[in-house]
Computed example of a mutant assay.
Amino acid sequence: MHARFDAPRFRPARTLPLVLALLAALLAVAVPAAAPAHAAVPDRWGFAYLDNPTPPPGYVPDTTRQWGSWTAPAANPVKVDQVGTGAYVVHFPLIAGPGGIAHATAVNRTGTWCQVQGWGAAGTGLDVKVSCYQPTGAPGNSPFTVLYTASTGAPSTAGGDYGYLFSGLSSSATLTQYNSSGGTNLASHGSTGIWKAWLPGLGGSTPVGNVEVTAVDAAQGARCKVADWFPSATGQTFLVACFDAANVPYDTRWTLSYSVKRAVHGPAFPPKSFGYLWFNAGVPAGTNFNSAGGVNALAAGVPATVTMPGIAVPSDTAHVTAYGSGPGWCQLALPWTRTSGTVKLNPLCFNPGATPVAAPFLTAYTSAF
């Protein structure tokens, strides 16, 4: 069930005065030794873009923006049912199984954001529940992208790094995780709405790769983001910050995925066509990757424009995550476009008052092929 809100007035964002002290304590947590990094190949995965925010029952969303690991995806499409205002169930066929993670990204210019409620097997398929909320906190209809992926088993030896985790509410409550180095990812809870994620054996001593974070909450509207990133030669530490619709730090579950020269859902080559970019007062070289060897470009603006040459191959998907300690959020302003092999993404960020602003973000695009 969705908790429905009266339209609250926005309150000033609560500052995070204990972040530095908390960070020192979190970083002091013992972590396992790093192992050599390897690649993972997901056992099961699927993605889709809901292009109609008020779909009829059994709706088949945009067929050029959905695919998956099941048999004959073109003949067995993803379907979506709307079960309430801003509430959707995405049906991925033939990939039932445990574990894994899901991400969702809203696609609109209004500031309505989307999160994941949960996921699980439904017969032979797998359902991901997505809920969307207006800036007031009231449920709201919106287009969105959604992705599910699950990896198990021993690491492979193909190139690239990949890891994910699904964090519970209590300290060190990792509900599911995968690490291509064979290490164990950890999540530690600090003050309200603040966690540390530790992914050993992945990445490097400077920022490389891409990070995506999504709130997971079945009770009310929640937003989560990457608050900070601390790379090291032994692994990657991320601070995750979560907020409710009133911009107050809030404890909720969340998913995080991290990939280096990998598609956002985990596989190495193939797919041959994917890319990612981190904008944070500039674009660090290691966080700007294009699998075709092209140079991704950023044009600052509201929304921003990210162009990735040579990799626009349907079927495909894209995601955006906000970066920074405050309660602002980011999404896509409109669906990505493809022109002569170049994909164009338009990340759009909002301040706590739901006004579009230029702000840091991480974005990832991948084709299924």
Rank of each mutant, 00 (worst) to 15 (best):
A7C: 13
P8C: 14
R9M: 11
R9H: 13
T15D: 08
L50Y: 02
T54N: 08
P57S: 11
P57M: 05
Y59S: 11
T63D: 04
R65K: 11
P73K: 01
N76R: 00
V90N: 09
V90Y: 09
P98V: 08
H103W: 07
V107W: 03
Q115V: 04
G118P: 05
G118Q: 01
W119A: 04
A121L: 02
Y133L: 02
Q134R: 14
P143Q: 13
F144W: 07
F144I: 07
Y148I: 10
T149W: 10
A150W: 14
A154K: 04
G168N: 05
L169F: 06
S170D: 12
T174E: 00
N179R: 05
G183R: 04
N185H: 03
S188I: 00
G193K: 03
W195S: 12
L199C: 04
L202C: 08
P207C: 09
G209F: 09
G209N: 12
V213P: 10
V213S: 04
A218T: 00
F230N: 04
G235A: 01
L239C: 13
F243H: 06
A245E: 00
A246T: 13
A246N: 11
V248D: 12
V248G: 09
T255W: 06
K261S: 15
G266N: 15
V283N: 14
P284F: 15
T287M: 15
N288T: 13
A304R: 09
V306H: 03
L332F: 02
A333I: 07
T337K: 06
T339W: 00
T342K: 02
T355H: 01
T355I: 02
F369H: 05
